[in-house]
Amino acid sequence: MPDPDLADLDAFVAVARARSFRGAARLKGMSASALSEALRRLEARLGSRLLNRTTRSVTPTEAGAQLLERIAPAIREIGSALEAVNGSPDVPAGTLRLNAPTVVARHILPSIVSRFLLAHPRISLEVENNDSFIDVLAEGFDAGIRYEESVERDMVAVPIGPRMQRYVLAASPAYLAARGVPEHPRDLLAHACIRHRFASRVTAQWEFERDGETIRIVPSGQLIATSAELEAQAAIAGLGLICTFEEYLAEGLATGALVPLLEDWLPPFSGPRLYYAQRQHMPPPLRAFIDFIKVDNG
């Protein structure tokens, strides 16, 4: 059996990740029919079906999922090596792919990204929001950004953005006038709370800590959402209490539309970290970004 063509393997990885021929075609800058033909050749050479295709979805078969897990990092490394050869050693060039939580992508990365790209005009940056912990290399990213408790131990991690952040519990003055001001985390069980649900379908608990005591609350209320901005607006409208990153509530707190509560029960925590696998040949765009944020963080 002849060895599969590298371009066909690359096409398979693109379609398997995008779960769509059209979506992969947009990302690759080629036609969906060309990708389909590449998949047909690859499956014929391997003698195994790699993707289940319906009119609504494209999903890897068991064999396809196993192949994707094994070859996706290798395809990425080959691309990085080619970019390194094509670029000048003194002027890093190529594409940097990052995966970051929504709060980081919206409130921390914008100023960092703008200054980095202005300083490195030959680097392109792709940022994807994801609030779940994923295998960044298997998913085709050069690095991820997560909080300390979510960073795998075999990864290298460096701080990015603020060294400390905090959650804020808050409510509108109108809500507090009608329902009273909670004096202790357990009081929240008698209050309407605006809840956040992650993409994993898990609804967030609220955690409070003071003097070595930790209290976890399972909040209840009318609204469950996946959008922190929607939740903040609901709190301003008086629908209930909200507990989330301070960044999402900053405007409401500054104008008095929201009032902070139980502040001594919500200590600050370590800010986000950029994490990546240690490798002998690091892609030049990633090396440039790491050097940039190290200088940026002082």
Rank of each mutant, 00 (worst) to 15 (best):
H196T: 00
H184R: 13
D264V: 15
D154V: 03
D291H: 12
E213C: 06
G252V: 05
E152D: 14
E263K: 15
A174Q: 14
I194L: 15
Y276M: 01
R195A: 13
V168H: 05
R179P: 00
L188Q: 05
H184A: 10
G271P: 09
F292Q: 11
W265M: 08
R163P: 00
P283Q: 04
Q280E: 15
A234N: 02
R179I: 06
M282G: 00
L253F: 07
A235I: 00
W206R: 04
S270K: 12
H191S: 02
S270I: 08
F208N: 00
S200R: 07
D291E: 15
G238L: 01
R201W: 13
A254D: 13
D264G: 07
F245D: 09
L169Y: 12
A190M: 14
P159K: 08
R197K: 09
A254F: 09
G161Q: 13
F269S: 08
A170K: 07
V151K: 04
L189H: 11
H191T: 01
I242T: 08
H191I: 02
A237L: 12
H281P: 02
H281I: 06
P162C: 12
P260L: 11
G271W: 04
S227F: 08
I242P: 03
L239D: 04
G252Q: 06
Y248F: 09
P182C: 14
I215D: 03
D211F: 04
Y275H: 15
Q205C: 02
I224H: 02
D264T: 15
A235D: 04
L262M: 11
A257K: 11
V168K: 01
S220A: 13
D187C: 04
E148S: 15
G212V: 10
I293W: 05
L261Q: 05
Q233M: 09
Y276E: 00
H196R: 12
R216C: 05
A237D: 15
Y276D: 01
I224Q: 01
A225C: 12
I224M: 01
L262A: 08
Q233K: 12
A257L: 07
L241A: 02
M164W: 12
G161S: 10
A171K: 01
E183R: 10
P268L: 15
A235R: 01
V259A: 13
I242E: 01
R210T: 05
P283I: 03
C193A: 15
A237N: 09
A192I: 03
P283S: 05
A199H: 07
E247T: 11
E152A: 15
L239N: 01
A288C: 06
H184K: 08
E209D: 10
S227M: 06
H281L: 14
F245W: 11
Y276T: 01
G212Y: 07
V158M: 03
I293P: 07
E246Q: 11
A178G: 04
M282I: 09
P267I: 12
R195T: 05
L189M: 13
L188R: 01
L286Q: 04
Y167C: 03
A232D: 00
L253S: 10
I236E: 05
A250G: 00
A199I: 02
P272M: 15
P159S: 13
M164R: 14
G271M: 08
Q165D: 12
A170Q: 10
A170T: 10
W265A: 07
Q233N: 09
A234H: 10
A190F: 09
P159H: 10
